[in-house]
């Protein structure tokens, strides 16, 4: 848009151009100033953590409120990266990428398929299964941990990534419901038209619906990646070898309330752990914009 307004404005008579520019600047200021202040407030705590990761450990708590390290140092990163007993953070990174990457791929695809089934096809027992699906979201995992563990142990899956990844092939209730809502926001005439053109149900899903729910799928991908990235409970229960630990689990290895904690290393590694999640968001959010404007959903 911004790219279009530039040349368009230039073609206008000079007087109108000035007024237009002034108005644009005022409107732009009115938008940017409060938004910027609000967003800075939002990220203050993160800046604080980031700044702390460059402070000398003794300064972190002495010089708490300052955002500028007095004696900036990279020691925290070097010490933190060394990890535990020879298992360094590059291992944890790779493990986290496997876990989060695999989970995202599996979960988004399978959720979209199931969501289409629930949203667009009328079949026997649909409401019953939908209710079951929602109910599974309402039971706190804390009481499911042990039965699940026993089950996976019987399958012989303990100490592997299988209990963490295989269930993701079956979608997630949260995302199924979410994508459903997006599909239901699409006019049904699209399906009817496609059907008249000879498209089957599967064809409708792949050719009509899937391209249109791109924003929902991208949103689901961003969330799945992040939620898996930060999940420590699954890895805690099913992985028993530091070489297989994920980043989120390893980060917890630094701190124990009873004993001394290297806060500098925690902040350094916690800051680093945000980088991939942040990058994924920044990368995908572009498509969030594009997805809609290029598909040009014209409706009925």
């Amino acid at each position: 848009m911004a790219a279009i307004t530039g040349p368009t404005l230039r073609r206008l008579p000079k007087l109108r151009q000035d007024a237009g520019q002034r108005k644009a600047i005022v409107s732009s200021m009115a938008y940017h100033a409060p938004t910027l202040i609000l967003s800075l407030l939002m990220i203050y705590p993160i800046l604080w953590m980031f700044a702390s990761s460059f402070k000398v450990p003794t300064d972190i708590w002495k010089d708490v409120s300052s955002l500028i390290p007095k004696q900036p140092t990279l020691d925290n990163y070097i010490k933190g990266w060394a990890g535990f007993g020879g298992v360094r953070f590059d291992t944890f990174y790779i493990n986290s990428f496997i876990y989060a990457g695999g989970a995202t791929l599996f979960q988004v695809v399978s959720s979209a398929i199931a969501a289409f089934g629930f949203a667009r096809i009328r079949f026997f027992g649909r409401n019953f299964w939908f209710t079951c699906m929602l109910l599974t979201l309402m039971l706190p995992v804390q009481v499911l941990i042990i039965p699940q563990y026993i089950m996976f142990k019987q399958l012989g899956w303990i100490n592997t990534y299988l209990p963490l990844l295989v269930p993701r092939l079956c979608g997630s209730a949260f995302f199924i419901f979410m994508i459903m809502q997006f599909i239901r926001g699409l006019p049904k005439e699209l399906d009817e038209a496609a059907r008249i053109d000879g498209c089957g149900t599967i064809g409708i899903f792949f050719r009509i619906i899937l391209p249109l729910i791109q924003p929902a799928m991208i949103t689901a991908a961003i969330f799945t990646f992040y939620w898996t990235w930060e999940d420590f409970m699954g890895p805690l229960l099913y992985l028993s070898n530091p070489k297989t630990y994920t980043l989120s689990l390893a980060l917890r290895g630094f701190a124990d309330p009873g004993t001394g904690t290297d806060w500098g290393a925690i902040f350094a590694m916690a800051s680093l752990s945000l980088v991939p999640v942040f990058a994924i968001f920044v990368f995908f959010q572009r498509y969030l914009v594009q997805g809609i404007s290029t598909t040009g959903l014209t409706g009925g």
Partner: peptide
């Protein structure tokens, strides 16, 4: 259980 200091020493 413990924190990093204990992990490193115990592993050694």
């Amino acid at each position: 259980w413990g924190s990093q200091n204990r992990h490193d020493r115990t592993i050694k």
